[in-house]
Nucleic acid binder design. Structure first.
Lengths: 188, 188
DNA sequence: GTTGCAAACGGAACAATGTTCCGATTATTA
DNA sequence: TAATAATCGGAACATTGTTCCGTTTGCAAC
């Protein structure tokens, strides 16, 4: 791929991410192209359909969120790491205004996303969760899937003041995990 | 209102309902106008915004579903009536392809719908539920709100084979209600 | 039955937006 | 530096929500 093509591609993804966060995933393609300093043709060369751009941005952010797990794990003790990553995950979900609707619309263009979502995020959370359980700061017996889904649901509750509400609810959830952490015996 | 206006209005609502059921709420207004044998201008005279038409159809169907409760209650014994109305409600929710998304989009055009939804459907279900509890064919302690929400959620589960899946899940739910029905004492 | 008119109608025209297409531009390489 | 092939930009097209206005029509007064 030519050097300039790579630059435009990166600029495009970056701008799309910002526009989607600002105006939701229904923002016009023209707005994204303009913000990226790129022609419409260029956008459609890289992403033949509007949905392809959305999918690319979304995968990008899934990756970033998943990768953040090991970064955070190396900087904080297990309980704090879990709590911080959960908030990181809330931020991620929070920027998805309108995407949930597209996902549930049955449009086959998005059918690969949920799979990718679980494939990347579940192991990331599971690692943090296992570490916290091993350190006895979080109770065992909670599935990573369930947590991911619960938080995603919480983030789509009452609209309007999502950010604060969601963060508080997830804090509660994590505190719930912490409650009664050390009650199991050490081993057989 | 002029007689012809009433006719066109009725035809419009009827056609809109059918088109929405067939093609989802995102169907073009032109398609509805054509099916109703009506000009575009007529549609927009009655419903200044596309969303107004959607809201009108939806309220119409909420009313029909709520009114069905007393009909069914007069024809079947309480337990059967509850079960039948629940399936009627499933049918109603099932035709709402795409509407849930619109509802959760935050568009203020739809903000009155959830209120109306609860105002009409909750009393309808509550009556059936109370009767079934009084007849000791269903356990007490279940809130109408929770049932309505649970069923609505079930209907939007795995897409593709919704109809069968939803009906079966709701059957299960009702059977769950029946289980252990007569266990309370008759009175103080 | 005729007539007048206000209301309702129909569809052309406009605006916004996804998508396609092609001449102009530019990075790459010999 | 020049040839070339990939890339770019934006004009043009298609679809769809919305507006506008000349035409038609139900209704009431005579």
């Amino acid at each position: 791929m030519r050097a300039d093509a790579q630059r435009k591609m990166a600029s495009l993804l970056q701008s799309a991410m910002e526009v989607f966060r600002t105006s939701g995933v229904d923002a016009p393609v023209r707005e994204i192209a303009e913000k990226a300093g790129v022609g419409l043709g260029t956008v459609y060369r890289h992403f033949p359909q509007r949905s392809d751009l959305i999918v690319a941005v979304f995968k990008n952010q899934i990756d970033a969120c998943a990768d953040a797990a090991s970064d955070i794990a190396s900087k904080y003790e297990p309980g704090e790491a879990l709590a911080r990553w959960m908030q990181r995950y809330v931020d991620f979900i929070g920027t998805k205004r309108g995407l949930a609707a597209a996902l549930h619309s049955g449009d086959p263009a998005y059918s690969a996303l949920p799979v990718y979502f679980n494939k990347r995020l579940r192991p990331a959370l599971k690692t943090l969760l296992d570490a916290a359980v091993a350190a006895r700061v979080v109770r065992p017996g909670i599935e990573a899937d369930d947590l991911l889904r619960a938080v995603a649901t919480l983030c789509h509750g009452p609209h309007g003041q999502e950010p604060v509400y969601a963060r508080r609810m997830v804090e509660l959830l994590v505190d719930g995990l912490r409650y009664g952490a050390g009650r199991e015996s050490t081993g057989p």
